[in-house]
């Protein structure tokens, strides 16, 4: 049976971090274009404040992603266990042939006892 789809709201909605990132980049450009140190200081302060928001958003998204990783891990482990069982089952065909050989050998022995 196929695994149920993994739902992660963060992945299905627009990323607020991208909007703040665009602002952060715009402030970065403004910083380098500012001609005096006072203007640079002001823009730098603003950029750091926006950066702190990005950090918060990213921390939260990484945390949300972690929860989905944990859910996924169970599914991956289950599939790997099923594959191991299948491999064992296939390998048992070789073992069955070995067993069949032993059975044939035993039959020969029994027949030799009853000429």
């Amino acid at each position: 049976m196929a695994a149920p789809p993994i739902v992660n709201p963060v992945l299905d909605n627009p990323d607020p971090g991208d909007a703040y990132q665009a602002l952060y980049d715009a402030l970065g450009s403004a910083y380098w274009e500012a001609s005096d140190i006072s203007g640079k200081d002001t823009i730098h302060g603003l950029q750091e404040a926006v950066g702190a928001l990005i950090d918060e958003i990213d921390q939260q998204q990484l945390k949300n992603n972690t929860d989905v990783y944990i859910k996924l891990n169970a599914q991956v482990l289950a599939t790997n266990a099923a594959l191991k069982d299948l491999q064992t089952s296939i390998n048992s065909i070789t073992k069955n042939i070995t067993t069949a050989g032993k059975v044939l050998s035993s039959i020969t022995t029994v027949l030799s006892l009853f000429p």
């Binding site: 196929a2 695994a3 991208d18 990213d58 992603n65 599939t79």
Partner: peptide, 24 residues
């Protein structure tokens, strides 16, 4: 077939992580 939804979800997650790592 069983694993494909998980693999797709995992690839989307790693992609999302990489996007965040780029931002950070």
């Amino acid at each position: 077939t069983d694993m494909d939804p998980s693999v797709q979800a995992l690839c989307t997650l790693i992609d999302s992580d990489a996007h965040i790592l780029r931002r950070q």
